[in-house]
């Protein structure tokens, strides 16, 4: 595949908006929907995913000429699974509350298609510098969406943000927002708003 290299700045910036993993590519939606019932959980999941993405991309980019084509996916999965286990154990050892709140969704980062997708589409074809820019951009974009989504759901569903009560006693929490349907509603509206903005700007 012949592609003209993008300017370095664009390599980073594309993850934030133009190719945002959640809003545009809709990759890795399982954790996006499952754990964003509070801003804190969204941030923790975003950081854990970012860690795995950055480390895996680094290793895949370094080993891209060593791994034979036939077994590249197996290689990526071993690499990704190792870093996920590192992150899982790290949270269980140092942040037991967050680890309990995220439950099985940390080990499930292994099957997050955002991470495998970036290895296959980018890290395996590019040098370390570009890979870092790409992974960092994607990580920041992913984490920001998770924080915003978790924040909206926490404010409406619990009347607080990052566990700090924002709305007083008069506010009756919308229980549905911290239930699974709330994730679908909010994410749907966020994607619609992003598309609307892009269409308006494109005209």
């Amino acid at each position: 595949m012949a592609r003209t290299p993008k300017p370095l700045k664009a390599e980073f910036a594309k993850g934030l908006w133009a190719e945002n993993p959640v809003l545009t590519s809709m990759l890795g939606l399982c954790p996006v929907l499952a754990v964003t019932n509070s801003a804190e959980n969204g941030l923790a999941m975003g950081l854990a995913t970012s860690f795995v993405l950055l480390c895996s991309s680094t290793l895949v980019s370094l080993l891209r000429k060593v791994i034979p084509k036939q077994v590249r996916i197996a290689g990526y999965i071993v690499i990704i699974a190792s870093f996920v286990t590192l992150a899982d154990r790290f949270l269980a050892a140092y942040f037991p509350e967050i680890s309990a709140a995220l439950g099985p969704y940390i080990p499930l980062i292994v099957v997050n298609c955002l991470i495998l997708g970036r290895q296959e589409a980018f890290s395996a074809k590019n040098g370390l510098g570009r890979t870092w820019l790409d992974s960092t951009g994607m990580s920041v974009g992913f984490t920001l969406v998770l924080i915003v989504l978790g924040g909206i759901r926490e404010i409406l569903g619990n009347g607080s943000l990052f566990n700090i009560p924002l709305l007083g006693d008069w506010f009756d929490p919308w229980m549905v927002m911290i239930l699974p349907p709330g994730a679908f509603f909010t994410l749907g509206l966020m994607i619609a708003a992003a598309n609307q903005y892009n269409i308006k700007r494109g005209r």
Partner: peptide, 27 residues
Amino acid sequence: IVLSLGLISMIAGGLLSLWDKQTAPLI
């Protein structure tokens, strides 16, 4: 193929066992 997968698995196994030593008592 065997060598490269073996190499990757060895790196992964080494990392994991080191990290397990570090975190198991804390957990």
